[in-house]
């Protein structure tokens, strides 16, 4: 099942890593969803349907996603106590998976709607890839403004392999 994109946000709310896969498929499914909606709501007057939704830049996407997970997380905590955190949500175009560490690092993944829960997988990425190759890399800075030091070769390689293994499941 396809995985569309992956984001890491640091404790300063900044997006320090992002990666996209299956661009085309994702927009096909998004466009299909739009088309379905449109066919219900718009009058059949022969006006051509929108082909694709307005594209945002990757940075704007990341900002929006952060806004969503940040608000959802706070809302969940207000509703049921500080130990609770939200795990995922689903639209008819994608499913968003969320994992945060006690150090306020936030991992977000967008996948196909039928994907099972990936919280454990995000935890694995943190433990086996992020901590091993980014935190323990002596040449990488402690803070990663603008993503400095996160997208290192070992991390990218490990992530790519891990993503493939999840998609193959």
């Amino acid at each position: 099942m396809p995985i569309y994109s992956f984001y890491i946000f640091d404790r300063h709310c900044e997006c320090i890593y992002t990666k996209q896969w299956h661009e085309a498929e994702r927009y096909q499914s998004a466009a299909a969803a739009t088309a379905r909606r449109a066919s219900i709501t718009s009058a059949p007057d022969g006006v051509s349907l929108p082909q694709a939704p307005g594209r945002l830049s990757v940075q704007d996407d990341a900002k929006l996603i952060f806004g969503v997970v940040f608000s959802l997380r706070n809302m969940v905590r207000k509703l049921s106590g500080p130990d609770d955190s939200f795990i995922s949500f689903r639209t008819n175009g994608y499913k968003l998976h969320y994992y945060e560490t006690p150090t306020n690092l936030r991992f977000v993944m967008l996948t196909d709607t039928k994907m099972s829960n990936l919280r454990a997988a995000l935890h694995q990425i943190y433990v086996n890839l992020y901590v091993e190759f980014v935190v323990k890399n002596p040449l990488s800075p402690v803070e990663h403004p603008g993503g400095v030091g996160v997208g290192v070769e070992m991390f990218e390689y490990g992530l790519e392999r891990f993503i493939k293994s999840i998609e193959a499941e």
Binding site: P82, P102, K136
Partner: peptide, 19 residues
């Protein structure tokens, strides 16, 4: 201090502790 900033991530990764 600089060790601690990184060591905490290793601590959390190894122990899988929550808050």
């Amino acid at each position: 201090y600089n060790i601690g900033l990184r060591l905490i991530e290793d601590f959390l990764a190894k122990t899988n502790m929550g808050r």
